[in-house]
Amino acid sequence: MTHLEFNSELNNIKDTLFGFALKLTKDYQDAQDLFQDAVTRGFRYSEKFETGTNFRAWMSTIVRNTFINKCRAAKKRRTVSEPIENFTYALEGQNPLANQGEMNVRIQEIYQALDQLNEIYRIPFLLHFQGYEYKDIAEELNIPIGTIKSRLHTARQQLKEMMIAKNRLPEPVAADM
């Protein structure tokens, strides 16, 4: 496909493609960026388009794949937008809490939450926390390894819910796309 043919075909479907980009991104500016990146990519690889096939489907696939690639890249490069001074404790190897008393209270709350767990979840969790591997825990408790993994997952979820309920953990926020 020549560049002239590409431009002609693109002009016929650009509104449809932009609408698709807008549907994926749910933001006008992001849709414009996505549309531009996809058109650039389509133009660059226009010689790979097979004449006689569906140009709209081909470009829609490029838009979709470009969107997926952007989402993956954004997930990898999530950055913290706070000043580095807020994280000096990490650089200095110090405790992020202002005093040891508050730290002790939090540790006590974690132990209380652990005590509230059902025994079938608490024991595998504590063994795993102490450094035992899944297979070692499974052998020790005479339970299949899949059950151990499931119980650890459930224990983590229950602990997380308990800590959120006590306002010690922030509630999870849906990722922005």
Rank of each mutant, 00 (worst) to 15 (best):
E102D: 15
F125K: 01
N99C: 15
N86T: 07
G131C: 08
E119M: 12
Y121F: 13
Q94R: 09
Y134K: 09
Y89E: 14
E102N: 13
N104A: 07
K70I: 02
Q116V: 02
G101I: 11
S81A: 13
Y111R: 10
I84C: 05
A73Q: 14
H128S: 15
N65M: 05
E133N: 11
Y132I: 03
E102K: 12
G93V: 07
N65Y: 03
Q94W: 04
T88F: 14
I107L: 12
E140C: 09
N69H: 11
R122P: 02
E139L: 07
K75C: 05
Q116D: 11
N95C: 14
N118P: 07
E109I: 04
P96D: 03
T66E: 01
E119N: 14
A113K: 03
N65S: 11
S81I: 08
T79Y: 03
S81H: 09
L127A: 07
F67H: 00
E85P: 07
E140H: 10
N118W: 06
A90H: 10
K76Y: 04
Q94D: 05
Y132T: 05
F67N: 00
L141R: 06
T66H: 01
R122D: 04
I123D: 06
L114T: 01
G101C: 06
C71V: 12
A113H: 07
G131T: 02
I120M: 08
C71Q: 13
D115T: 01
Q108M: 12
T66R: 01
E109M: 12
Q112G: 07
T66Q: 01
C71M: 13
V80E: 08
L127R: 12
Y89K: 09
E119K: 14
L141D: 04
M59A: 05
E92H: 09
V105Q: 11
K70Y: 06
F125L: 13
F129Q: 10
E140V: 04
A98S: 15
E102W: 01
Q112S: 09
N104Y: 07
I68G: 00
I120S: 10
Y89D: 15
Q130E: 13
N69L: 03
R72Q: 11
V63R: 00
N118D: 15
G93D: 08
P96A: 08
F87T: 05
Y121V: 01
F129E: 05
G93S: 07
M103G: 10
N104L: 12
N95M: 12
S81R: 10
A90Q: 14
K135Q: 10
G93M: 11
D136L: 06
